[in-house]
Design a protein around this nucleic acid. Sequence first.
DNA 1: GCAAAAGTGTTCCAGATACACCCATGT
DNA 2: ACATGGGTGTATCTGGAACACTTTTGC
Lengths: 222, 222
Amino acid sequence: MTYNYKFPHPAVTTDVVIFTIDEDSLKVLLVRRGHGPFEDRWALPGGFVEIDEDLESCALRELAEETGVTGVFLEQLYTFGAPQRDPRERVITVAYYALVPIDRLHPRPASDARDVGWFCCDSLPALAFDHADIVRMAQQRLCAKLQYSTIALQFMPGRFTLGELQRVYEIILGEPLDKRNFRKRLRAYDCLVDTGQQRRNGNHRPARLYTVKEPGAVRIVR
Amino acid sequence: MTYNYKFPHPAVTTDVVIFTIDEDSLKVLLVRRGHGPFEDRWALPGGFVEIDEDLESCALRELAEETGVTGVFLEQLYTFGAPQRDPRERVITVAYYALVPIDRLHPRPASDARDVGWFCCDSLPALAFDHADIVRMAQQRLCAKLQYSTIALQFMPGRFTLGELQRVYEIILGEPLDKRNFRKRLRAYDCLVDTGQQRRNGNHRPARLYTVKEPGAVRIVR
DNA sequence: GCAAAAGTGTTCCAGATACACCCATGT
DNA sequence: ACATGGGTGTATCTGGAACACTTTTGC
């Protein structure tokens, strides 16, 4: 069975840059290619868009397949379509990026038989296709959005301390922030709720635990 | 002759939202569909991506075909791929938007036999497919970029007055701006050159003529 | 001389930055 | 008692917003 067209059609895929914060680093999920071009190279999770499938649904499917998570932040990044980016046939990829909360990344990557792993953004292995470009653009976008939106909250677990949140900002921006200014700014955003609970976590004063007021929402600020 | 694939492939097009400023309005170029679905409806210029053609090249080709202009600002906007957006077959469109300088829009639209026209963004006719969504997003993007980049200069002819430039900002933003603050802001951007020339244009003092320092460049500011 | 757009600076306010000390806990 | 991160407020700076009058021209 084949599908026939009067004019040549490109293949269309979605690839997803799945970010999380782990071990004090911004990491992306990569899968090792088991065959085809770039065999054994690391690549972004992705796959062909089904003929009746929405682009975002396709990206969500990739995300769920690789991480098991649903309901997380996912946004279209850019469409990459250089004619020779895939040596087999013309493949246009609609790239997305997703943010997986710190406490929701455990299940899959290890359990799966395939070679899957989280890599620090600043020390990636050689990637297949133009995936290095895609990751670079996604990281730029994330960095930019951090400055004028509440996107960073998408990384946070159910309850967290302000210190932890500040660390997330610092990891993504790659520079230290002033504690008092940081807290003042987040107070102004009015996006957190003090749970009243505390967490004792070492040889020091316990920290207040906060939750996100509207967990799904990414608000534009500034 | 047909092209055969083991799996169904979507068709891929680019559509271009071509903006210009004319008659004190922000306008977009539309073409009337001569056949197929949405016959006689107005639609964005666009067409299928050739199998060896870069996405941006395809958009540039559409742009040149409809307006005759080359070398103008063109940027990818978003990719629209809802499964039923085209009733014939699955069509994914990579939307671009382009900015055509005021003094370069004359040649084609009238000379062409086809039904082509410039329409005010705020009084568009019913559009084919999901093109109304595309135009809306393009207009939002333009409006946003106006605030933090020098994108507006892409609309300007070779030489222009600060009053004319301010009008462009006001038309796109849909609100009046303060003259002194506007000039101070542009001075700070340091993107204009005073030609030393003037233009007499009515019963009032002549205006200085400026040119853009780096005509191709769109700088991020603020 | 009058209408019409060009041109020009200062004051004020808000939001961002810089900065240092005490607090609660575990060892 | 000391080491560790948690928690708090003020002074300053900077960029944006508000605002009015003089200039040059054509009629």
